[in-house]
Amino acid sequence: MHPILKLVAQRLSLGLLLLLAASALIFIGVELLPGDVAQSILGQSATETALRNLREELGLNEPALTRYFNWLFGALHGDLGTALTNGQDISKAIGERLGNTLFLAFWAALFSVPLAIVLGLIAVRYRNRWPDKLISGITLSTISLPEFVAGYLLMYLFTVEFRIFSPISTIYAGMSLGEKLSAIALPVMVLVLVVLAHMMRMTRAAILNVMQSAYIETAELKGLRPFVIIARHAFPNAIAPVVNVVMLNLAYLVVGVVVVEVVFVYPGMGQYLVDHVTKRDLPVVQACGLIFAAVYIGLNILADVISILANPRLRHPK
């Protein structure tokens, strides 16, 4: 077998194992929460009989291990159970929300990743000169700004001062792509500002590290332009660390955008999770946890695989 296939298969199986462990942790965590699901559905005034019947119906009397495997088995088949509060099918509700979250994350990534890398390259080209300091200064200040502050600032700027966008980013099925993009423009901007600095700084650091190599001197003595040296000779050797930090930020775009979703009333996963945590709807919380874990692990595996593919020694063995 080609060594790369072997490495990738190894990473994938490790990822699956990790996901299994994460599912157990999520289940245990939810188990440890005080209170009783039946009680929270029926309220304080419920009779003993009603509670017992409901527990029976929900399978709450089974041992925890059985319930865990039932839940896991269902999740593997795409059945994440039903929400306690409204009796809806969780898989269906999450499917829609996850779609919205991924939509937002996709557009944020589409702008932030290339922008961060190009800014990183420019920072290296003019290292320790004013463009480098300017880029670092701006990106570091935007990352230092809490998301909700950035969100409200942009909202004030673009909906009050200049009426370009709507302050509410709600999207629904019937909208055209253009309408959707106009709706999410503000949250995308906030997310770009939040993730930009981290990726830019890492690109800069990784490339500066490579710039010490002897082959960079070779490139300089070939009379190449500084930017060509950075982009063609340094960057390909700095891909692995950059990809890792890019993936971390992509994962953040999916699982960490609760605040932004709340600020802009965007119907994504984060808001869905927060809603149901306050309502103590444990099956939903559990399901969201599992999805987030899967996204996180999946993106990190992807980062590993890209790093492996970017290494010519692994791609082209002797």
Partner: peptide, 25 residues
């Protein structure tokens, strides 16, 4: 002017070719 000189009129062979070649290309 230096870019036109380097790599065109004058070229360089380094001591350690193993380090002087870009591993990614």
């Amino acid at each position: 002017g230096l870019r036109a000189l380097r790599g065109q009129e004058v070229t360089y062979v380094a001591q350690s070719a193993a380090a002087a070649f870009n591993p990614a290309k």
